[in-house]
Design a protein around this nucleic acid. Structure first.
Lengths: 257, 257
DNA sequence: GGGGTAAGGTTCACTATATGAACCTATGGT
DNA sequence: ACCATAGGTTCATATAGTGAACCTTACCCC
């Protein structure tokens, strides 16, 4: 396995929202030897991708990541464009909403706005959401080419909750419903008691980039509420898609997809 | 040299504000062989750190960087806290202002707000500013320990403009003036016709993290204006420092430095 | 439309680099 | 004073990285 990918894997571990890992724990989580882990972390640290808490010696994500993330935002302002829509969606739906971008096999949560209700779903920025068990992931798949979906569903599909669907055919049914409806429904596939609704953010060519989703306690998720939030979510996804790539049909494209 | 650092160096090249580099140019800029460059880029691409424009084949910064940058912001909201202050400073000073964070030997520009004057200085987010020739860098050094400054000034100091100072002793003079004044003045050290003023953002322990700076055309930089902007800049740096780490003297510290 | 050029991409023998078991060191708890 | 735990280091071995030379594709110019 390439050394570079091992190092990048360490960054993923550090992205976990509540990580405060020392060397030994990093080695355990990554599966690498302690010496290897340390050498990789030092290389990352030398370029500012990782920094170390002086007191606890815990490894943290470093300033280079902020800089590079900002540099990317300069050319493709995904966060800047998505954030206002996510806030508006949380407001209009009354529930926690968030935006994620597809990153190598999972959806990376970029921006979240919690509901102000006391019983609400919490979404952590930096979480990687699995494709087959979240509204964001299924929305992304629903907007993808069949061959891509097939490949994704052929991989091992972990079970997260009692309701997690790991049968590709059953997942295909959900996706085809979503395609005709314009948004995907996700009934406690990853966590008990959480219902979510999602819609894909797509490039002008129709390739999906990411997704918008709203998550609510399933006790509040009656059919009427779901339909209402579904429409809002689909509209939010369209709005972000349009603002990202310029008016539909326009030639002012930021990047080709 | 470690393979990981080579790969990370490629990301730095891609961070250049107007980069649109293909494989050959990446190889030339990095100094690696074309085959090596490509292998590294593919590894970065596999984890979403790089993506490739389908049309031009140019390599671009990938979505993983946005995700990790956002994950870091969750725990240490540098950008979120700095941005309003930068905007206010651009407003009150009437000139372009920006914030940068120290990243392995240089200042990485994180957030900029241009002046609304027609003759103004432009600062690119993602630029890496040298320590010895910018207000941001010199402000950072002025807030650093002497031993650190010594080490930084002993390295080769490139000449950027006619006014660039490469003599450590002369730079020490600037720094000691800055220390007594509370802000640093930078008279066309990196670019002809650009005067800038900077102040360091510091942790409660006094360790510098980054800097705030205002840059203006030197023809507008008379002594009175400089003193005025210097005071505003120093105040902005203090404001960011305080908001980043909680009220001074408080124990609610986000990270130890 | 043919022929030249330049860029992207690939191969494989060679070599530098990464690896990890065993080790040392520092710190905190009892 | 002792043990337990975590951070950090060493060096012989094994693995992964390297780059000169090669192929392929796309475009430009006559």
């Amino acid at each position: 396995m390439g050394t570079v990918r091992k190092a990048l894997g360490l960054l993923d571990i550090l992205a976990h929202p509540d990580s405060r890992y020392g060397l030994t724990e990093m080695a355990r989580l990554s599966g690498f030897d302690k010496a290897t882990t340390r050498r990789l972390l030092l290389e990352l640290k030398a370029d500012g991708f990782v920094e170390q808490d002086e007191g606890t010696r815990a490894y943290l994500l470093g300033p280079a990541l902020l800089m590079l993330g900002r540099a990317r935002e300069e050319r493709f302002p995904f966060f800047k464009i998505a954030q206002p829509t996510v806030r508006a969606l949380a407001e209009s739906s009354g529930e926690t909403s968030h935006v994620s971008e597809y990153v190598s096999g999972a959806m990376a949560s970029i921006c979240a706005q919690e509901s102000d209700k006391s019983n609400r779903v919490i979404v952590q920025v930096g979480e990687r959401l699995p494709l087959h068990a979240t509204a964001s992931g299924l929305a992304y798949l629903a907007a993808s080419m069949d061959a891509f979906v097939d490949a994704a569903l052929r991989k091992p599909l972990p079970q997260f909750s009692a309701n997690t669907i790991t049968d590709p055919d059953a997942l295909w049914t959900i996706l085809s419903n979503a395609r005709s409806r314009g948004y995907v429904e996700c009934d406690q596939l990853r966590a008990d008691g959480v219902f979510s609704v999602g819609a894909a953010i797509v490039s002008p060519k129709g390739a999906p980039i990411g997704a918008v989703a709203v998550a609510l306690p399933s006790m509040r998720a009656d059919a009427e509420k779901i339909a209402e939030i579904g429409a809002l979510t689909a509209a939010a996804a369209t709005e972000i898609s349009t603002r990202l790539f310029g008016k539909t049909g326009g030639t002012q494209r930021i990047r080709k997809i």
